[in-house]
Amino acid sequence: MAKPVLLVTRRLPPAIEARASRDYQVRLNTDDTVRTGADVLRLSQGADAVLCCPAEKLDGATISALPATVKVLGTFSVGYDHIDIAAARTRGLPVVNTPDVLSVATAECAMLLILAAARRAGEGERLVRSGQWNGWAPTQLMGTLVSGRRLGIFGMGRIGRELARMASAFGMVVHYRDMARLPADLENGAIWHGDDDSFLAACDVISLNAVGGESTRKWLNAERIAKLPRGAVVANAARGTLIDDAALIDALRDGQVGYAGLDVYDGEPKLNPAYLDLQNVVLLPHLGSATTETRDAMGNIVLDGIDAVLAGREPSNLVR
């Protein structure tokens, strides 16, 4: 029996392209050319399955125009804002994604941001690379101690809970703010706050790990920043929209926020240029989940889902 045909819209990690090539007649994108919805329609003629990425907007019109041969749509992402799920449901097209596998890598990135910001790693790195380092000095680049401090986590989902586990191993005391208190086994000793004021006052370090969208837009604004202990450390590896950038920049300038570590930005890949002039921020280009292990795991779980649908089985990662 001929292998089924799989369209892969973008370049994927080598191990994943190898697996896809082994199991499918695969249409790869070796040049990693950006694809539009129209490109996906054109390239999926005769395909049994499509593996897309968040860069392609698959709206209702595109979904309904997909060739009838396409029996499953996979996305190389946890999120599926780029896919009109209702249209897929109407057409009877199962969609599979990559849940869970990004949590630890993203939590790891949040912990890196906390440590790098609090310990002034950006400044230290630039000092060494500049060739201007004159030697060890007792008061040089003194940052703030992370171990033993209070960490406030805004949004205690999977990533927040992984971060809590990591931070506890640094002797940090974990507080969290979420709509509802977690069951004790998931809470794991962390202290729940039902209101912003008591939560913010407990944050020597605050990590944002909440979902994006209108309900959390600019959640960390001037008013809330003022309620943090003076000199607090702010980390964001979740969504750029959670922060009012102008307010955070003001606070970083006047010392209300001591240090910040950011992996995501409102309007990325553009960012507020004022960040680039600040020394007390560590900036990463939204690579929170960018590890070989994580990308391979994402590729494997989405291919598992596509395999399952084509074999007539129920995939574990079906978007409902």
């Binding site: 994927l12 900036l283 590890t291």
Partner: peptide
Amino acid sequence: YEAIMRAGWRRGFGLGEMLGSRV
């Protein structure tokens, strides 16, 4: 990553590009 940011960023990365090693 920091050097990319300080240079202004403004580009996306392919899914296999600039990958780190998970700890």
